[in-house]
Structures are given as structure tokens and as C-alpha cells.
């Protein structure tokens, strides 16, 4: 996956970049399956590798093929990125270890969701239960965001169709 990102950074042909992005999304989906996040993996495979590739290709057709060669070597962004990476690596030292059952993420509400959700909602898939019921407001907000983004695209691209 990291190799795909490096290739993505180097690829100057935009069509190649879009295909690489699709591959990257698919790899991400498999990683998510390995991490037991089946719902998320399903979404990533359908959205990342499917729909966004179609949209990117559609947009690519409209804006055309090649990326210009940068005028200067992008040294400053490289240094900046590495610096940010170093800060992140430093901050990572304070995070709990992988698959630590005592990590904060596992000892708050999640345990209650897992214990109570099937009994309270009658839905064995806890992800669905939390998504639609416990965090219903959250999901309503997300749905409205999706709706608004769709409306925004309609507003941006509609004009020419009218004539």
C-alpha cells in the first residue's frame, strides 16, 4: 500500500494516477477486512474502488490528461512532510499498543454497546445498531452532508445543460 502511494506521487500521467488510486482503495479495503471492519471494508470497496474511480475518470475526461512538470524541485514540501512525519512518529510513542484490551477505546461506551445492543434493539449487527439508533443524530447529519454535496455538484455543473 505504501508502495502504491509512492507510485501515485511519482506518476505524472493522470489516468495512471487514477488507476493507482483505485488499486490503493482496494488494498485499503482488504486491510480493513483483516482488521475485522467488514462493514467499512464493504463501503471502501464499493465507494473507493468503484464510484470514486468512475467519478475521477469522468472528471479526467473533462479536464484532460497530463500533469505539467513542476518548475522547481519540490524540496520544501518534502522537508515539511518529513518533519510532520517525525512529529507524528514522536506522538505515536504515547499511544496504546496494537490490540491492547485495556486501551481507552475499549473501556468506555463500546463495551456497553456490545453487551446491550442486541437486547435493546434486536439487531445483532452492532455497527448497524450504533449507526442508526445510538448515533442517529450523527447519521442524520452525515446524510444531510451527502445530500448537500450532491446539491452543490448539481449547482456547479448544471448551467450548460439548460440551453
Amino acid at each position: 500500500m505504501a508502495a502504491t502511494v509512492v507510485a501515485l506521487a511519482l506518476q505524472r500521467n493522470l489516468f495512471g494516477a487514477v488507476v493507482l488510486f483505485s488499486i490503493y482503495s482496494f488494498l485499503m479495503a482488504t486491510v480493513l477486512v483483516a482488521l475485522d471492519a467488514v462493514d467499512v471494508a464493504m463501503t471502501e470497496a464499493a465507494v473507493g474502488a468503484g464510484v470514486s474511480t468512475v467519478l475521477l475518470l469522468g472528471a479526467l475526461y473533462l479536464v484532460g490528461g497530463m500533469e505539467a512538470k513542476p518548475l522547481v524541485r519540490p524540496l520544501l514540501p518534502l522537508v515539511l512532510s518529513i518533519a510532520v512525519g517525525a512529529v507524528l512518529a514522536y506522538g505515536m510513542q504515547g499511544l496504546p499498543g496494537f490490540s491492547d484490551p485495556q486501551a481507552p477505546i475499549h473501556v468506555h461506551v463500546a463495551a456497553r454497546y456490545l453487551a446491550e445492543a442486541p437486547r435493546e434493539t434486536g439487531v445483532p449487527n452492532v455497527v448497524t445498531a450504533v449507526l442508526a439508533s445510538y448515533r442517529g443524530y450523527d447519521t442524520l447529519g452525515e446524510t444531510v452532508v451527502v445530500f448537500t454535496a450532491g446539491a452543490g455538484v448539481i449547482a456547479l455543473l448544471r448551467r450548460r445543460k439548460r440551453k
Partner: peptide
């Protein structure tokens, strides 16, 4: 079971991301 809460958050984040 793995923790369902991040799954919920990221599930919606992916769809909002593509939008």
C-alpha cells in the same frame, strides 16, 4: 468482538468523503 464505534464513524466518513 472488535470495537464497533470507529467502524460507524469511518463508515459515514467514507461516504461523505466521496461526496
Amino acid at each position: 468482538y472488535s470495537n464497533p464505534l470507529p467502524h460507524v464513524l469511518i463508515l459515514t466518513a467514507i461516504v461523505v468523503g466521496v461526496a
